[in-house]
């Protein structure tokens, strides 16, 4: 028998869930709404919710002023490239940490994570100098490499935890069945970890997409992604909130759409654990 839940209880839970949900979505929703207002309506007090003259003017201004497609293309290449490269490196790394751990594995994992605790500014100069001498400044290749390295600890950690969930016995069975190491990873481990790998990829694309320190500091005109596109609409002297909102909406739209279409995969990946 299913436990019976009273209607009142249900209604209360629904309300709470919706409230929390709305609170989380509100900033994004507000940005999108603002992007359809005029600058004067954007700063109106009291704030205007739905009843204002919707306009597409901000979008046409933004479109006219900046080459959105170039920023978008850079974002796609940088986020996608760094994630794929990261996955290629992290899968074998996480495999060895999860299934043939050494005495130092735990230390290495912690050490990797600790690199994330160092403020990025601290290594800006060395990396900038390195980029200059390698000719990587303002190139997509350079950003792919840097973002890959920045996110590698997270990719390895996520894959490691997913791989840990996979019973060792299954991999041992593959070994008994004559699979080589490559076949074991390719035919057994990877397919089983697909939900985990997929959500790792997705999360890292999002992280790379929104990464705003290195992408701003290592690019100029050629390789600048959408973060630079947004930054170019932020102004301390002058009220351009509606245009900034339009630019932000355009910048997050692709990732929102990607997230929307893969949310099943993502939820499955994040609640991964029942493989047996």
């Amino acid at each position: 028998m299913a436990r019976s839940v009273s209607t009142r209880r249900k209604a209360l839970n629904t309300i709470i869930a919706w409230t929390i949900g709305l609170m989380i979505v509100f900033p994004i929703l507000w940005t999108i709404l603002t992007s359809f207002k005029t600058e004067a309506q954007a700063i109106n007090d009291p704030p205007l919710f739905f009843f204002f003259d919707w306009t597409l003017e901000n979008y046409s201004v933004v479109q006219e002023r900046s080459d959105y497609m170039r920023f978008l293309w850079n974002s796609i290449i940088i986020a996608g490239g760094s994630t794929l490269l990261g996955i290629l490196i992290a899968v074998p790394a996480a495999w060895s940490m999860a299934f043939v751990p050494s005495k130092r594995t735990k230390d290495i994992l912690l050490w990797m994570l600790s690199t994330k605790m160092l403020p990025a500014v601290g290594v800006l100069y060395p990396i900038y100098l390195l980029f200059i001498s390698l000719g990587l400044l303002d190139t997509r290749v350079g950003l792919v490499l840097v973002l890959m390295l920045i996110n590698l600890p997270i990719i390895v950690w996520m894959l490691y935890t997913y791989f840990k969930e996979i019973p060792t016995e299954i991999l041992e069975a593959a070994r008994m069945d004559g699979a080589t190491l490559k076949e074991e990873i390719l035919y057994v481990l990877t397919p089983m970890a697909i939900p985990g790998i997929a959500s790792t990829i997705l999360l890292n694309i999002i992280l790379a997409w929104n990464e705003a320190f290195w992408t701003l500091n290592l690019t100029a005109a050629q390789a600048a992604p959408l973060t630079a596109f947004i930054a170019s609409y932020s102004s301390p002297e002058g009220l351009f909130y509606a245009k900034l909102s339009a630019a932000s909406t355009m910048a997050i739209a692709p990732i929102l759409i990607l997230g929307w279409f893969s949310q099943k995969q993502l939820v499955r990946g994040l609640t991964f654990g029942a493989v047996k």
């Binding site: 019973p167 016995e169 299954i170 041992e172 069975a173 593959a174 070994r175 008994m176 069945d177 004559g178 699979a179 057994v188 397919p191 089983m192 697909i194 493989v275 047996k276």
Partner: peptide, 19 residues
């Protein structure tokens, strides 16, 4: 290596490939 020994093993958890 395990595969070269000509042995087959059945595990307690069955260790079937779920996919």
């Amino acid at each position: 290596a395990p595969a070269k020994r000509g042995l087959a093993m059945v595990f307690q958890s069955y260790a079937l490939y779920p996919h």
